[in-house]
């Protein structure tokens, strides 16, 4: 499983969220999400499927569709498939997060304040170091607990928070719809379709 997770991460790191999602779907294509909506690469949407309109997702090449009802598999098997797929999606998001951080570092290296590149500022370096460290930890979490629903949900929550920490490093350019943050945001929307929880913490 570790190799599969790493492959999903690599696909997203190299090509963005959509190629990563495509690989995850090829690996576990029978999982059914806990809610009514799921994410698909736009070119995988079946004829007649109901698509939830979303501008940023469309720009990213992703469509959110109302999902098909659960198949005849036993509920416990479906739950296991679901968690494994959510873990693969987590790995995809780790790849997107690393890609986002690469872009952020490049952005910060090209800007200066007070005559010093932003990438050398202590506040900035602290954030970059924390994100690198936390992404390593999330990757390990997905490897060791990819069949544990709460752990996978926790991984997604942490990725969402880390992506925001990284997005802030771009300043206002991180808020452009054609910028690198878009893939992370669409990834978050996709993850929300695959994570369920009984205990909602603030």
């Amino acid at each position: 499983m570790r190799d599969t997770l790493m492959a999903c991460e690599a696909a997203a790191h190299d090509g963005g969220f959509t190629p990563g999602l495509e690989l995850a779907l090829r690996t576990v294509d029978t999982a059914v999400p806990p809610g009514r909506v799921t994410a698909l690469p736009a070119d995988r949407v079946p004829a007649g499927a109901v698509v939830v309109p979303h501008r940023l997702a469309a720009l990213e090449g992703v469509a959110f569709v109302t999902s098909a009802p659960a198949g005849p598999e036993p509920a416990h098997a479906q739950g296991d498939h679901r968690t494994v797929f959510a873990a693969l999606l987590g790995a995809v998001r780790v790849g997107v997060s690393r890609r986002l951080l690469d872009d952020a570092v490049a952005h910060l290296s090209g800007r200066a304040a007070g005559g010093e590149p932003l990438i050398r500022k202590q506040l900035v370096l602290g954030t970059v170091a924390d994100v690198i460290t936390a992404l390593d930890a999330v990757r390990q979490l997905l490897c060791v607990a990819h069949r544990v629903p709460r752990a996978v949900t926790d991984a997604h929550d942490r990725i969402t928070a880390l992506d925001w920490d990284t997005a802030k490093l771009f300043g206002a350019s991180g808020f452009l719809a054609d910028g690198p943050v878009r893939g992370a945001y669409v990834g978050r929307l996709a993850a929300d379709c695959w994570t369920d929880r009984e205990d909602v913490q603030p």
């Binding site: 806990p34 997005a167 802030k168 206002a172 695959w194 369920d196």
Partner: peptide, 29 residues
């Protein structure tokens, strides 16, 4: 928190909530 509270896919099923989840990012900048 709101997305978690309203369950899987909530942001796509509640367009206002999804819009606000994008809007709040702007205040940072």
């Amino acid at each position: 928190w709101a997305a978690r509270a309203l369950g899987p896919g909530a942001l796509l099923e509640h367009p206002l909530l999804e819009k606000w989840s994008r809007d709040v990012l702007a205040f940072e900048f």
